[in-house]
Design a protein around this nucleic acid. Sequence first.
DNA 1: GAAGTATTTGGACGAGCGTCCAAAAGATTC
DNA 2: GAATCTTTTGGACGCTCGTCCAAATACTTC
Lengths: 199, 199
Amino acid sequence: MTTAHVKTAKGTRTRDRMLESAVVLIPRLGWSAVTARALAGHAGVRPGIIHYHFDSLEALLAEAAVGAVREALEYPSRQLESGISLDEGLHMFLAALDEFAPDEPVNLLFVETFLAAARGGVLRGELAQVLLDFRTRTARWLERVGFDGDADATAAVLAAAVDGLMLHRALDPGLTADKAFPVLRRALGTTAATEGSSP
Amino acid sequence: MTTAHVKTAKGTRTRDRMLESAVVLIPRLGWSAVTARALAGHAGVRPGIIHYHFDSLEALLAEAAVGAVREALEYPSRQLESGISLDEGLHMFLAALDEFAPDEPVNLLFVETFLAAARGGVLRGELAQVLLDFRTRTARWLERVGFDGDADATAAVLAAAVDGLMLHRALDPGLTADKAFPVLRRALGTTAATEGSSP
DNA sequence: GAAGTATTTGGACGAGCGTCCAAAAGATTC
DNA sequence: GAATCTTTTGGACGCTCGTCCAAATACTTC
């Protein structure tokens, strides 16, 4: 499995520092442009140490990315299960939009990880599972909160929309949570008439 | 600006072949993993020729990506202005979802281009303009078709949602247009009550 | 403080990178 | 068909890549 013969606190700290550097550099440089030397430089270590703590650079990136995504979803996940309302929940989803920080853009990390996973490898299965789990929790929350449409499909679209908004936000600073809220609020509204009419 | 001293049909063909190879390889390998040699190999030429037709590899990628995005939006753009209904338009937006082809995933090209643009450079301005233009056309179509809410914000969220769905689709083959349609249809429905109530 | 283990270094390895260029090859013009 | 212009080649350039490893260092245990 993952090479991780860490026995002392110092070793753990170095390992963690490299993981954190990966989380910073992946969005900044792009997944495949994060080199061993760039990462080591950012973490304040020599490149050689990478292969003491990890099997490969790619394994380091994958562990860092999935870990960051899992961690980023933990708090929202718990919130959803704490009985918050539909409006509160949607606000929480969109809060990530306005927390956009150019120096540590977690949103772009999400997208980079998505793309890296789409290219295949171990990442694909792991990330898919993390996201499916979160989507399921979102669907259960929707049901709990009184949504009476297809909760699973709605949760899937909501998650996709938030990711898409984070991506677009990177190019358009005017795309704030305030703007997006009413639109998505409508999608979460009481399930309306199934079909309109063509003029 | 872009080095392009093409004077014969043969030169044009070689140039185009390289642009097409970039469009194929960017989603497959990831933006920064498309090397001069990989691209030349796929296009059936020698790496040296890249700098005869383009200023740099990066310039080649940028021209290919923006060109592909612009081209991909051309048909939908014309459709929106041909008087199609709200339902027809939304179906068109989501059609891209089911056209997903693993061997030439245009959707992933979109996302890769987005990320490359977010990293800065000339790409950023160019892509932002192309997308803003398309978003504006979408907003005008929404107004024309009877949508009475904030058409600009709704168009922005719609575009983001479609991009996000394309991204998620790469990891979840079950995320089809049929599933997403009713959800987004609700977001485009007659603007509902502004706020719900918390229980 | 010696012995033993865990961690880190510094330098090396072959491979591949983007880019350049003189010369060859092909096309066009007269 | 010679002259001229355009396109392509093949090989080279200096550099950086991921990875490896023996030696040096830090830490823990006794």
